[in-house]
Structures are given as structure tokens and as C-alpha cells.
Amino acid sequence: MNLDELLQGLFPSGHDVRVEGAIASGTGRLPGLEVAVLGAVGGAEVGVAEALRLAAGVLRVVRDHPGRPLLFPVDTRGQRMARREEMLGLNGALAHLAECVELARQRGHRTLGLVHGEAVSGGVLPLGFMADEVHAVPGARPAVMNLRAMARVTKIPLPRLEELSRASAVLTPGLESFVATGAIASVWQAPLDAALAAALARPGGPDRRMALGAARGGRTLAQRVAARVEEEGT
């Protein structure tokens, strides 16, 4: 789904979201509620410049519109891989962005990630996946990396990897796997504005992704292991 279709579906009463240099930002209207929209879109790579623009956007909403919910549309092919980005401390810029989202949460803003295109690693960690809840629309393509690249890095032959990945939500790229592991809470169907309103009506609360992964059988250990560490430590 492209961004225009997505925004039309989410905000039938209108929005003023503009895309500049791969960053979407603006406000959407729901009945009686304004929603801040902010995200890297169009399959963009996220580098230092993009991360700082996104962080500035989050801080602006926190400063000027206390409590306004934040929606992060996600369509990014990941972090920009380049010597210059590393020299400028890309990991630090992304960490700053994650801190800004945490600040918004602490100050009572509801945050939602919504994957409508790609959602790869460093592009999605500090913003979309930092949200209280992460959802997707049909056709979203979340991944860590494609199987071909994975085969190259892990030195596992591609046919073997393809065979294994058919059986494992932990390994296979794609929406189904990310739903099964709990990364994506649900896939929204039309009408999208109703799905958005329903999500915003729920309280923020703690990170529930481990419980989801366990309940859906796509990631069965994480929940138990984290709980055991907490219990043994108590």
C-alpha cells in the first residue's frame, strides 16, 4: 500500500501530511482527535540527517502538542550503510531518536507504529518498533535481510536456508513471520480509520510482544526466559 492510500484510509476527514526527502510529517484528523504522523517512507534509508529530522519531529509534538498521539508509518529499507554515516555516529543519532520516542511515552503520548511497506533493521528499531503497539497493513514486507544476503553472511547455502525458513517464523522474512513472533500485533483491514481509533482507545501499557509471540507459537521461549530471570532475581 502506498502512503497516499494509507493516509486516505486512516484519515477520511483529512490530513496535511507532506513528504519531504523521504520523511513524512504532518497531522491527521479523526473525529474529535488530531494525530501526529511522522515516519521514514518510500523505502527510504535512514541516515544521520533523517534520524535527526525524525527526532526533531517527535520533540516538536511533545513540546507543542502535549498528549497528542503519534503514528509512525514505516516504509524503510534500513539504515544507510556508508562510511560517512558511521563517521558521524549514526548509531548515536538513532539512539537519540529512540530516547525521544521514550520521552513521548513517558509524557503520556500514545505511540503506534504502522508498517505499510518495508521495515528493515536499523530503519525500524528506533522509531516504528519503539511504539507502544506495532501494526501493519496487508502487503507490508518486514525483514531483517533477504535470504540471499543472509546466506552470504551466515555461510549457510541458500537452498538449505530456504528449506529451513519455511518451517520457522524466527528465520523467514515477511509479514506472516513478524505477526507470529509478536513483532506485529495485528494486520489492519479496511476501514483503517476504525482500526486506528480502536488502537488509540487502548491504554499504552508495557511491551507485550513476548506474550504475543508465545501465544501465537512463533517465538515460544523469550517470554519464559525473561520471566525466569525476573523471578530468580526476586
Binding site: 513517558q106 528499531l125 519503539m130 549457510i156 513478524f178 509478536g182 513483532a183 511491551d207 509471540g213
Partner: peptide, 26 residues
């Protein structure tokens, strides 16, 4: 970083660490 041999679970785990770390700081 993420363990590619269990890529999706690894990415998600890093995301959960990030949230838990910032929650501890908060």
C-alpha cells in the same frame, strides 16, 4: 548485533532490550 541465524527473533529481541533499557532509565 542481531544473530542472523534467528534473524526475526534477534531483531525483535534488540527492540525489546531497547524498550526495557529506556524504561529502566525512566
Amino acid at each position: 548485533g542481531v544473530r542472523l541465524q534467528e534473524a526475526n527473533a534477534g531483531l525483535l529481541a534488540v527492540s525489546e532490550i531497547l524498550r526495557a533499557l529506556l524504561a529502566a532509565r525512566a
